[in-house]
Simulated scan of single mutants.
Amino acid sequence: MPPRPPDYLAVIASPCFSCGVTLVIDMLLLLGVRVDFINHSTRAPHPYWRQRADGRWELSAAGKGHFGFHSKLASKQESFDFPEGRAVLIGHNPAMVRYLAPSTRAVMVVRDPVDAIYSWQRRQNVAASGITFEEYLQQVLYFNVHKPYGIFQSTPLELYALFCAFWLSAAGECHVMGYEDFKAGPEPFVDLMAYLGVPVAAAEVHAAFARVESGSEAPARIEQYQLCNLKGQPREWTQRMAASEHAALLAGPLKQAVYGLLGYSSHATDWAAATQAPGQSYGLISGLMDALGQQLSDERDPVPVHTAMELTLQTFKDEFQRHVPSRTAELYTLPAIEHDCTQAFRAVTRFVREVYTAQDQIPFWRLRNLTLQLTGLIANSAGNPNVRHMVAERLI
C-alpha cells in the first residue's frame, strides 16, 4: 500500500447503499472542496485530479468517467478552484480509517436504511431480475469494498448496520449527516462547512444548494443506471409499508443499537450495552487492551497498529490458555457467548491488520474503541443465522 498522502480535512464514509452521497459531492465541489475517491483495490486515493499551471484543478478522463456516476458538475465543468488544503476523501471502504489522522474529521452520510437499500436495489436493477425487495432483504450479501468478507457479510439491513458500527467505533467523534435533513434544506451543509473549518458564508451555501436542487446538476449516469434516475425522497418507505412493518425490519440487537443511535429506530438499544459482550472472554480482552494501552502510550501515542494487534492477540492466547482448561480449549466446546466473543475478536484483529499497513500509527484510543466495540457488536449479533462473520477454528 502506498504512503499516506497529505492529511484530508475529513474522511466521509457512507454504507454501500444509496444514501444521497451525490448531493454531498456536488455541494462540496461547488463550495471549493476537492473530493477524492478511494481505490477499492489499492485502498489509496484515485489520482483523478491534476493541478494546472494556472493553479486550477481538472479531472483526468478516468476521473470524469467515475464522477459521471455521482456528479454532473464534475463531468461537465472544465476546471475548479480548490484552495490549498481543501480536500476530503469519500467512499464506502472501511480501509478509509487509515486516513483519519489526528487532525482529520470523520463524517458519515446515512439515510433511513430501508429507503437506502430499496434505492440501491433499483439502481442495481435487481428488480429486473425478478427478485422482489422483500426477497432481497433476506439475501446474504458482501461487497468487494468490504474486505475481508468475514466481518461484513450479512443481510442488507445488518450489513448496513455493521458498516455504521465500524465507522462510529473507529472514528470516535463523528459528524453524522442524515439524508432526510440535508434534502430538506441547506443548513446541514452550513453545519458541515463549520465542522470542516471551511470559511464559507451561509449565503454561498444556500446558493449552491438552490443550484443543485434545481436539477441543473443532476448526475448524468450512464444508460444502464437509468432505472435509478428517479429522484429519491425522504421516507419513501411509507409508500410501501406501515410503520409497524418498518419497525419490525429494524428489530434486533445489532440493528436497534445502530439505528437507534442514528435516529431511525424508536426501539433503541443502549449503545454501550450493545458493544459489550457478556462473559469472561470480553472482560479478558478489555483488560488486556487497557494494559497494552498503558504500556504503549507510556512510550508513544499514536501507536503502531500491527505491533499493538500482535501483542494483544498473543497475550490473549497466553491468558486464554492459562484460564481455560486444555480439555475445553477447543472453541466448539466453549459456552456460546465465549465462543462468539473469541471468534469476533479474532475476526476484528485480522480485519484491523489487513486495513492498516505495518507502518501505520493511530491514537491508541481509536484502536481500542474499534477493537472492543466491534468485537462486542459482532459477538452480540452472532446468534442471528444470517450473520456469517465467524468461522469455527482453533484458537490455540
Rank of each mutant, 00 (worst) to 15 (best):
R350H: 14
T371C: 07
V205S: 02
V88F: 00
V126E: 08
R394Q: 13
E58I: 04
T155F: 03
G263C: 03
R394N: 12
H267N: 15
L162M: 13
L100K: 04
A344D: 00
P199C: 05
A127I: 13
H323C: 12
E173W: 11
L227D: 15
C164S: 06
R350V: 13
Q77M: 13
T333K: 15
D301I: 05
F143M: 12
S18T: 14
Q359I: 06
G150N: 14
M390S: 11
A184R: 12
W120G: 10
E173M: 09
G383P: 00
I378R: 01
L254N: 01
G65W: 00
P6F: 00
L159W: 07
G130M: 02
R52S: 08
E173L: 11
L395T: 08
V88Q: 02
Q361C: 11
A207G: 08
A344K: 00
D26K: 06
D298T: 14
M390C: 09
P6C: 00
L196S: 04
V348H: 01
G65A: 12
T312D: 11
I378V: 13
L137P: 01
L159E: 06
A291F: 12
L141W: 07
E135V: 04
T342K: 03
G252R: 04
G287C: 02
R34N: 04
V35M: 03
I222N: 13
P385H: 07
E84S: 13
G68F: 04
V126H: 10
F351H: 13
Y160F: 15
G279K: 08
L28E: 02
Y225V: 03
Q295G: 08
S79T: 12
V190H: 02
V200N: 07
Q124W: 09
S75D: 11
